[in-house]
Structures are given as structure tokens and as C-alpha cells.
């Protein structure tokens, strides 16, 4: 059903980009992928609470997770690692994520053009049909690498 170019492996790309900087600080990990989507996981962490009294995960890490999954989805659809920059990201929070639950983000790159890529996705804890948040975003290609080899 899913055919993958052996030259491009989202899991390996995640090992590169998720193990440095902000993503590494959050502990973001590869979870799953398809032709044009990627799913990443954010483990539960006590020090990432947004509200101590209610024991609810902050929303910042969920934006980071969705942003990261967006970039990965774009590269996966292109089968190439090219620098992109977030132009616009909208996140609608449906409910708080579950206490001590990891949060996963599944993002799909539904349209890719020469200059921009359009993504949509969701964050969930137990069930993807009961999302914590939904998102939509637009990413721009940056630098000369952005246009090389593009149709």
C-alpha cells in the first residue's frame, strides 16, 4: 500500500533533526509515516506543564510538535530534505491532553508548490478521532536549496 523510496527515511531524518536543539529538549520522537504524512510523539514530562494546579500540559510543546511534524511531512512528500520556514500556523485547541499521556501529532502535506507547502494535522493522546488540537499551516522554501530540482 505504501511505497517508500529507500533513499529517504523519515525515521532517520528525525534521528538527525529531533536529537538536537528544541526538539531534543522536548524529547520529540518519530512514531509513524505515510507517503505525505508523518506522526511524531511528545512524551509526557512533568516540567512541561502549562497549569500546575490542573496538571495540564502546556500548549507550547504541542505547537512545537505540530511544527516539527509539518516540516517532516513536507520532506516526506518531497522525498528530500530541504530547508523550510514556517510562515503561518494556526492551532485550535479542542481539549487539554490527558494527564501523564504522551501526545502524538499527525500532519499531512496536502499541497506542495514551488514556493510553498500547505499542511494540516492534529494532535491527540488516546484516539486520533478525539483530537486534542487541530492545525493548519503554510511553509515557505528558504535558501537556494528550496528551488533546486523542483518541478
Amino acid at each position: 500500500m505504501i511505497k517508500h523510496d529507500s533513499s529517504f527515511q523519515p525515521r532517520e531524518i528525525c534521528d538527525l533533526v529531533c536529537r538536537v536543539g528544541h526538539s531534543s529538549w522536548l524529547g520529540i520522537q518519530y512514531y509513524n509515516h505515510g507517503d505525505d504524512w508523518v506522526e511524531l510523539e511528545l512524551p509526557w514530562r512533568e516540567d512541561l506543564l502549562g497549569d500546575e494546579d490542573r496538571h495540564v500540559m502546556a500548549t507550547g510543546p504541542i505547537i512545537s510538535l505540530l511544527d516539527m511534524a509539518s516540516g517532516m511531512a513536507i520532506w516526506t512528500k518531497r522525498q528530500a530534505f530541504m530547508p523550510v520556514a514556517t510562515l503561518d500556523l494556526r492551532v485550535d485547541y479542542q481539549r487539554p491532553s490527558g494527564d501523564r499521556m504522551p501526545v502524538r501529532a499527525r500532519v499531512e502535506c496536502y499541497r506542495d508548490t514551488r514556493s510553498a507547502a500547505f499542511v494540516r494535522g492534529m494532535a491527540y493522546d488516546r484516539d486520533i478521532d478525539d483530537p486534542v488540537a487541530t492545525m493548519a499551516g503554510v511553509f515557505m522554501n528558504v535558501g537556494s536549496a528550496g528551488n533546486s530540482g523542483r518541478k
Binding site: H22, A58, T59, G60, P61, I63, S64, D67, T86, L89
Partner: peptide, 12 residues
């Protein structure tokens, strides 16, 4: 900056 970290600053 990671876009997520910038967003976290904005939210905070």
C-alpha cells in the same frame, strides 16, 4: 529559533 519555541514565548 525553532518556530515552536517562538510560539511558546508568544503564548507565555
Amino acid at each position: 529559533f525553532h518556530g515552536g519555541a517562538t510560539s511558546g514565548l508568544l503564548e507565555t
